[in-house]
């Protein structure tokens, strides 16, 4: 792990994250992400042979609920907070996807 990221690496991560960065942000994150990961390197020194990962600390789940219809948000209510709702059609509108 380099202590500083290259601009190309930062750009590749930003593309995966769907984030447009300006050049100043690229410079800043190249340095800061490098610093933070250099600090985080210490966890890689811990011997974790045979140790299972913990993704959740839930110890006991509530019983499964019956799979039946229940009231939920009205469709119009659900889509009216959208930046560009098509209320008549019941859709979210988005910019052109192809081309």
């Amino acid at each position: 792990m380099p202590s500083e990221f290259s601009r190309d690496q930062i750009a590749a991560i930003a593309a995966l994250a769907r984030l447009e960065l300006d050049p100043a942000e690229v410079e800043l994150f190249a340095r800061q992400l490098g610093d933070i990961l250099a600090y985080a390197e210490q966890v890689r020194r811990v011997d974790t042979t045979g140790v299972p990962p913990t993704a959740s600390v839930v110890t006991r789940h509530a019983t499964d609920r019956a799979d039946e219809l229940r009231p939920s948000l009205d469709r119009d209510v659900a889509i009216e907070s959208a930046p560009d709702p098509a209320l008549d059609a019941g859709f979210f509108k988005v910019p052109r996807v192809i081309g």
């Binding site: 590749a12 593309a15 447009e20 960065l21 690229v26 910019p95 996807v97």
Partner: peptide, 15 residues
């Protein structure tokens, strides 16, 4: 940012 374009997945080029 410089470099964003060539490493972007295909949807990144769409509107």
């Amino acid at each position: 940012a410089p470099g964003t374009q060539h490493s972007a997945p295909s949807t990144q080029h769409s509107a």
